[in-house]
Design a protein around this nucleic acid. Structure first.
Length: 191
DNA sequence: CTTACGATTGCCT
DNA sequence: GGCAATCGTAAGG
């Protein structure tokens, strides 16, 4: 049973194999990272609830979308109870619905099998915008609502392993990256 | 108000 | 393997 009010390090492995859907595209998640708020210098919430990180301190089950390097939209799932901040960054996945739309968003040169590999690419494939930050994430299999954000928990637990996180300089030793080993859509180093 | 800096990507050598 | 692109924040004057 998926409980987003748990700390991100607990939630992260449970998101592997889950499917996130938005605006016509569905992605089966294969790579995530946990960010632990006030106790994690690498987290955007490390400096407190001001500014962009405010949503991270809000209730769990909402989105936190961040602009990276001026270009890329990174999609996070807010975890921990209201008032506490932690979140799971979705880094990569396999497009399982809306292939054509995802390909159009990523451009004709993007490899068809890696439309959502890498945090920026995943955000682009899903059509994530900065204004989606703070949006509630619908939980469970979509009954009929085609629009909006939905998260379908994994049907069965998947095998996973941990590594250190990618592209950060602070708290770089924490093994808070979770991947499905051997999956071809995982970005960057595979261990 | 001004400046420096990324939870990255893709093109170049 | 190296590096430029690009813009919302956060930090500093």
């Amino acid at each position: 049973m998926l409980d987003l009010s748990l700390p991100a390090t607990e939630v992260a492995p449970q998101l592997l194999g889950a499917v996130i859907r938005h605006d016509g595209v569905g992605v089966r998640i294969t790579e995530v990272e946990a960010y632990m708020g006030l106790v994690d210098p690498a987290s955007h919430a490390f400096t407190g609830p001001a500014g962009r990180a405010a949503v991270m301190f809000g209730p769990p089950g909402h989105l936190y979308v961040d602009l990276s390097y001026g270009i890329h939209r990174c999609v996070n799932v807010v975890c921990s109870p209201d008032g506490q901040a932690s979140g799971v960054l979705l880094r990569a996945g396999e497009v399982v619905a809306g292939q054509d739309l995802a390909q159009r968003r990523r451009g004709p040169r993007a490899p068809a099998g890696k439309l959502a590999s890498g945090p920026g690419n995943l955000g682009q494939a899903l059509g994530a915008a900065l204004t989606d930050s703070g949006t509630p994430l619908g939980l469970g299999r979509s009954a009929g609502t085609p629009a909006g954000w939905r998260l379908e928990p994994a049907a069965a637990p998947v095998r996973w392993t941990t590594t250190t996180r990618i592209g950060i300089s602070k708290n770089a030793d924490a093994a808070w990256r979770f991947i499905i080993p051997g999956d071809p859509t995982v970005s960057g180093r595979r261990h």
